[in-house]
Amino acid sequence: MPSPTITTLLEGHRSQPHQLIEALQDVQKHYGYISEDSMRSISDELGVSLMEVYSVASFYKAFSLQPRGKNIIAVCTGTACHVRGAKMVLNQAISQIGAEPGEISKDGLFTIEHVNCLGACALGPVVTENESVHHHMDPGKLRKLIKSLKKGDKEGASHV
């Protein structure tokens, strides 16, 4: 039996196979990732084979098939950020958190992602922490950001 939450999430998409991506977006937003159970529910409710659900979920970058950390640190590695040193920022994030991109940190607090372009190219290197955008980042500023987030200091993080 699917959980009541997922049934509610899938309400507007039932029996509409072409709504598969939208349904996955909603599930991803709510749970932070797409579990096997979620995929089964989507398959049942939308009338799409489980194989199809899996192939779509694994094709698009927007969907994570593993649980993610409480804080998502997305490092933009678009061209403009790349030429201004985004790789250093990404390396710093990986070493600070101790987990590779896409993985979850041991304390469950962080997942790093690299995004191919966040579209804030004029302000690169850009990093988003959850929904907020941080510009002109360097390894030092990133360390401060992660430190604030570890302390649960959202206000401090917003000033980095």
């Binding site: 590695t77 678009g78 061209t79 403009a80 950020c81 790349h82 191919n116 372009c117 579209g119 804030a120 190219c121």
Partner: peptide, 11 residues
């Protein structure tokens, strides 16, 4: 679906 890294006019 502006995916070109380094372009953000559509956004």
């Amino acid at each position: 679906d502006e995916g070109d890294p380094g372009a953000y006019m559509d956004r």
